[in-house]
């Protein structure tokens, strides 16, 4: 196991205009763990990601990464702390090439002057090439990201996350709209990544969650309904009622 920090959410609530998007949610992700989070629409999966990455401030509760309080930091600061996020809708930069997208994400000083003076060193180049290879995009390096297929855009996003060298990756619906082969490739990719880093995957696709084969957390109406192995949660009566049974 890596010696990284653990993600600790305790009693987190988020209220939007009286609607409880998160309701006393508690969750711990250990360093190096690969965790799947499932739940029906509106269960609070994306809001949970928003809270961890600083996009949404919790109404109540504790959100810590190691001993750092994330509720006091903005998105950029949290990203620089080592928490990377892949959005549900792939958002890569269409006007830049695949390589340039990776380069933009590569961990390096982020200020305007540092970016002006930036020169691509051999080490940075080989790190980018390694990530291109890992995500299977090496053939597309010089292509504009705008012409990639849906699956390739998702992998580019994951590759960009890797370039940030995060301790914790939050991956929102990585296989939505993917073919079976692409889904398989993505599962293998995420399993490879975990271990060195903690990974939280939010997904609808239960086959995919089974392929990941790790601990599963089921969210419902903003709090944890059940937690355990995929077989455990699939046999949990409450889970069957609200989610699987439909």
């Amino acid at each position: 196991m890596s010696s990284g920090r653990r993600l600790y959410l305790d009693g987190v609530s988020v209220v939007f205009d009286g609607f409880r998007a998160l309701n006393n949610l508690s969750l711990i992700v250990e360093p190096g763990e690969l965790r799947s989070v499932i739940g029906p629409n509106g269960a609070g999966k994306t809001t949970m990601m928003d809270v961890i990455t600083g996009k949404t401030r919790p109404t109540a509760g504790t959100v810590n990464f190691g001993d750092i309080d994330l509720t006091r930091m903005d998105e950029a600061a949290i990203a620089n702390l080592g928490i990377g996020r892949k959005f549900q809708k792939p958002t890569v930069f269409d006007a830049l090439t695949v390589f340039e997208n990776m380069e933009l994400a590569l961990k390096a000083p982020r200020g305007p002057l540092a970016c002006l003076r930036w020169a691509l060193t051999g080490e940075a180049k080989s790190r980018i090439e390694q990530a291109l290879e890992e995500t299977g995009l090496q053939e597309r390096a010089e292509d504009l990201a705008g012409i990639l297929s849906h699956g390739q855009r998702q992998w580019l996003e994951i590759g960009m996350l890797l370039m940030q060298d995060p301790e914790l990756l939050l991956v929102d619906e990585p296989v939505a709209g993917m073919t079976d082969a692409e889904t398989e490739h993505t599962a293998a990719l995420l399993v490879r990544i975990a271990g060195k880093r903690s990974v939280v995957v939010v997904e609808h696709d239960l086959e995919f969650v089974r392929a990941l084969g790790r601990r599963v957390t089921v969210l419902h109406e903003g709090s944890v309904l059940s937690e355990g192995s995929i077989d455990h949660v699939q046999n949990d009566q409450r889970v069957i009622e609200v989610y699987l049974g439909r």
């Binding site: 990455t53 903005d74 998105e75 950029a76 990203a79 620089n80 990377g84 996020r85 959005f87 958002t91 930069f93 269409d94 006007a95 933009l104 994400a105 982020r110 960009m160 940030q164």
Partner: peptide
């Protein structure tokens, strides 16, 4: 093209 995304990259 995507200011939010750039923020989450740590800029």
């Amino acid at each position: 093209d995507g200011e939010n995304r750039v923020r989450f990259l740590g800029y």
